[in-house]
Design a protein around this nucleic acid. Structure first.
Lengths: 182, 182, 182, 182
DNA sequence: CATGAATGAGGCTTCATTCAT
DNA sequence: TATGAATGAAGCCTCATTCAT
């Protein structure tokens, strides 16, 4: 009702998205999600009748929407495909540095837990499609292949960044996009 | 003791490596590991006094050794860096197709569970170093950068292959290594 | 208020009577009752301030009234005690066949849940008394004993019918009433 | 191992049989069963991997065996069918008086909870068969019909005894067996 | 009067681990 | 050494009920 205070459902979804991303679906208890959201025990099943699995689906949808927004915010002011790629990688590097739950690759969260593979792939394809659309708009001659290449590198780099506890791998992605020797 | 029949400890480690890779550390119960290994309930703590965490460390070490062997087997008969890369990607694609637990990216398993980040990175660095050594031997002018690029792409491609339920992404990696436009 | 459309209270009572009879008081949740009645979550406590226990009392009263009506409908057109008994047993057999919730013996429902034993016995005595009155009117020489005998057999036969998934036991009651050898 | 101290499994089964008979399957919590058996929380699933439903099956089997023993003990010393019937009813009346959990009709317990109908009927048929065998041995001319009649009356009488809080109904069964006018 | 949201106690079950044999 | 039994904390979920609107 109140547009300013987030609803209980939204708080649960946000808390779940954060926790599942860092600790995984099985590594996160619903009690933790409720505590993170600041809600009492019984309030989960009112908003998510299917329980934890429902929560995972909502969290994945939220993460997917956020990712689409981040891609949009990175590419919209860009003046060239390369500029957009650089902006996106830098955004991810800063998220990695500043927000603990962004240290885990958001794509991995889609593949853990009860989200069926088809839904996970649909989310991933949405990100690829959004990226390709921006690349196309900016004049990239092969937007689909470039988007796929970019995301392949991003996922791998994110995993390496996490293992190294350093966002350097994410910042190295633009150079890897430009040349075969980087 | 018997060098031909796998010992109980080895069977536990192998079962754990398989299960942790697919379902994650928190998604796998010790009961499942014991069932997969075909061993009785009480036998875990004889071989792994620290319990599940011990098992995770042993499983990671086993997976790491296997990966080093796979890299070696791919690069040793290779006649050029590109040939080695192609052989490695094809090996991974076939593992993905033929063995269910290889559908999950083996690097991800290092980042779940109680393995400390330093150990996970050490395993990953070992794979990078082994790959770089082979590339160097085969005459690659920038073996470290190429190894890093290869593994970044492999990790990303593996994740995409899993989401798509198709090893095509892994087979596309060699082309991505060669040119900035692939 | 509307005499033609059943009120919310009546729909709740009927739903509860049906469900408690089949699944028992503890086996039925208030959410199920509300769903069966097609009413929203919050509406129970407007009609039954004491909640589930209140509902159980109303359901028992409703079942008791229905039973008295069934006994009346069976015996009123009867031309002899035996005819009335036969009609009553046949009615029960048909209810058993046609309405799922009549597969469970209605007397059992009185003994589960928060209905105090005195109330349960009062309902049962009312059925016995109604039956005895009809038998007396039809000229039975020992109406009380015959009513008691009839209901003892009916309760047992109903239980057997349910276990056998066959109303035959109910249809066998009239013969058991007539002779010691049936 | 020790033949004198009942095993944990036996204590659980006995506790469950008692509690399910009085309070019903849904009205009894596993915590209550464990408390009644004097065992800690985790010990149920070691002996009954399927949990509460398994416990219900074991409890029904135990109750069924006990009933067969009671029937045997009543009829073996009997000198005639009528004598056996009288002894059985008196035994049940005394159980009703002396042991709280025998106030509930043991047949009803078979029809509550997860025991499938076929199993419930099998138990009931076993009691009928045991009773008929004894009646036959004692010279009853129609043992099957008489056994069926006896159990129909017993089940009904037990229910009435419970409602009345008085075992009189059970003690009235022999007379009902003998004559159509009782 | 009517209702969706909220609430926390308690339900059943699984867990990793320890113990007695 | 090897193992089935034991253990209780913690897991997810359902429950009957109350409340704010």
């Amino acid at each position: 009702m109140d547009a300013h205070a987030p609803t209980s459902r939204a708080r649960l979804t946000e808390a779940a998205a954060r926790l599942f991303q860092v600790k995984g679906y099985h590594g996160t208890s619903v009690a933790e999600v409720l505590a993170e959201a600041g809600l009492p025990k019984g309030s989960l099943y009112h908003h998510f009748p299917q329980g934890k699995a429902d929560l995972a689906r909502a969290a994945a949808a939220l993460a997917s929407d956020m990712m689409r927004d981040i891609v949009g915010a990175a590419f919209e002011p860009a003046e060239s495909p390369g500029h957009g790629v650089a902006r996106l990688c830098e955004k991810f590097a800063r998220l990695f540095e500043r927000q603990p739950h962004w240290r885990a690759c958001p794509v991995q969260a889609l593949l853990d837990g009860p989200l069926d593979r088809m839904s996970a792939e649909a989310h991933l394809q949405a990100w690829l499609a959004a990226t390709a659309a921006h690349l196309d708009r900016l004049g990239d001659p092969a937007p689909d292949a470039r988007a796929r290449r970019l995301w392949t590198l991003l996922i791998g780099a994110w995993t390496m960044a996490r293992a190294a506890d350093d966002p350097g791998a994410l910042r190295a992605v633009p150079a890897m996009m430009e040349s075969a020797d980087a």
